[in-house]
């Protein structure tokens, strides 16, 4: 099962994602949190600390991987929460110099899905803005759009978080959110 959560900044995507993975009831399923944010600067550190606090006591093992997620090795039938696609895409484009990172990221996601009972990925909507940015940023907005479309095709369930409210775009809403 692959669940994709999208939505704007600070709209409760992580909470919804964690709720789905926590409520997914398979006995002894190991739960992993794949963190893709490179801890640059104080704001990243704050975001990381906030997300760690939300995950406290939920028995997630954290794996930090900023690019090349296909290299992650997991036990079979794991539960995985990957957060987030927008950092992963930026890291592939700007740290790893991958101009069109969509195929590489999709291959990585498909590899991880093979290990999992449930895979939840958090992404972000970045293209609903009227301002023209630098060419690099416009390229990023394009790649994020293409990537999200492709991920939504692969996903069994797609949810848009709107101020904490899960809006179902594809599939069936997980019971824990009803």
């Amino acid at each position: 099962m692959f669940v994709l959560i999208t939505g704007g900044c600070k709209n409760g995507k992580s909470r919804i994602a964690e709720k789905i993975l926590t409520a997914y009831d398979v006995p002894n399923m190991p739960r992993f949190y794949v963190a893709t944010m490179e801890p640059f600067g104080s704001e990243a550190a704050e975001a990381i600390a906030r997300h760690r606090k939300i995950r406290e006591g939920k028995n997630f093992t954290t794996i930090e991987k900023y690019t090349d997620i296909s290299e992650i090795k997991l036990p079979q039938d794991s539960g995985v929460l990957l957060e987030c696609i927008c950092n992963l895409c930026a890291n592939e484009m700007f740290s790893a110099n991958e101009k069109s990172p969509v195929p590489k990221i999709i291959r990585g996601i498909e590899t991880l899905i093979n290990y999992t009972e449930i895979f939840v990925a958090v992404t972000n909507q970045v293209g609903s803005d009227g301002v023209k940015y630098s060419p690099e940023t416009m390229a990023y907005i394009k790649q994020m759009g293409l990537l999200n479309n492709r991920l939504a095709e692969l996903a069994d369930v797609v949810i848009e978080a709107v101020f904490g409210i899960p809006v179902l775009l594809k599939g069936d809403l997980p019971k824990c959110l009803c």
């Binding site: 909507q125 970045v126 293209g127 609903s128 394009k142 994020m144």
Partner: peptide, 8 residues
């Protein structure tokens, strides 16, 4: 409608 590159 929709954001940029959403498949419109």
């Amino acid at each position: 409608t929709g954001g940029a590159y959403q498949g419109k």
